Simulated assay, not measured.
Amino acid sequence: MIGIGFVYLVAGSFFAAAAILGTVDRRWSNALFHALLALSFFAGDRLGDIGNGILVLALVAIATSGRMKRGEASTAAAPQGPLLALALVIPAAALGGTVLFKQMPARVDPAQATLVALAVGALLALLLCHLLLRAAPLSGVRAGRRLLDEIGWAAIMPQLLASLGAVFALAGVGEVVGGLIGRAIPTGSIFGAALAYGLGMALFTVVMGNAFAAFPVMVSAVAIPLLVHRYGGDPAPIAALGMLAGFCGTLLTPMAANFNIVPAALLELRDRYGVIRAQAATALLLLAFNILLLWWVVR
């Protein structure tokens, strides 16, 4: 059965290729960083908790050493061809593949259908770029490695922050936060619970940089005990709206470096926080709307 292992194989192969190209170009720190990432995808389940912990510490050591080099400027000619159509291959494959693979439970793990479809879409887009644009076989990998070097260590921040959220949940942070919020919310106030959940998701995301890190904390603290169990809300829209509230926090924080700081660097903006300033008003309006929608859904 095709499952998450296939996705790890595709991701690990890309990082391994980036490590090889980095070695050829004598970008030693970048190559080692990408090689460790490839190892985590290829053999993370066999390294054990201690092995993976050492691997993460090694990644942090490389990232903080200041020896990772930024991506080199591209010298390739601008490609010609159906670029818009090629750009839509991955989302189209992810959507269509999800629907198709869920009808094939004997061959594709239904729980991982979307990720498998996303990986297939990335490979298909790479193949079509090679065939339609007549690019060299490794040009796509080289361009991906160049972008990866430009982003640097921030490329793995979503994974690290999502792991941090899981650690917080296992450590019982959600229960502590839930106790504090429970005493602050007036008894029987659905709006108060919706406000605490939505605002908490946004604030935790601002602090931790990723809504996936905030989600397990606020769900265990407010969403499940109050909005679902006490007030009988539907878990599906509550979870979805909570994530949307968290994404509003993503728009407001430099901790979400891959969304807010890296684009400012790539665009060479004078104001390092210019992206955040441009998004702030929209983020606050969307947060208010999501909180009101949460209240309406639960009540």
Rank of each mutant, 00 (worst) to 15 (best):
A245H: 05
I276Q: 00
L132S: 06
S189C: 02
G188C: 02
C129K: 14
V207Q: 09
A214M: 07
H34I: 11
G53D: 02
V177G: 06
L269F: 09
R145D: 04
P91L: 03
P186D: 03
E72D: 14
L133C: 01
A245L: 05
A93W: 04
A288E: 01
V262W: 00
R272D: 08
E72I: 15
A77P: 12
P137R: 05
V56H: 05
A122M: 12
L251N: 11
G3Q: 04
Q279E: 12
L84K: 14
L36P: 01
R67F: 10
L127G: 11
F41L: 09
V173I: 14
I151S: 08
G242E: 00
P237S: 06
S220L: 09
T253E: 06
A240V: 15
V120N: 00
D45S: 15
R46F: 12
A194C: 07
V222W: 03
I190L: 03
V219A: 12
A278W: 07
M243G: 07
L59H: 06
V222Y: 02
N52C: 11
G81Q: 01
A211G: 13
D234F: 11
A117Y: 00
I181D: 04
F259Y: 15
A63L: 07
L86D: 02
G97A: 02
G140A: 01
L115M: 14
A35T: 10
G198Y: 00
A239V: 13
T75H: 15
Q112Y: 12
D49L: 15
A162T: 15
G192F: 00
S189N: 06
L287A: 01
D149R: 07
A113D: 01
A76R: 15
I62F: 00
A193S: 13
D25S: 14
R134V: 11
G232E: 07
H130V: 13
N258T: 13
I224H: 09
L124P: 06
L227A: 03
G22I: 02
V7W: 01
G274D: 02
V24I: 14
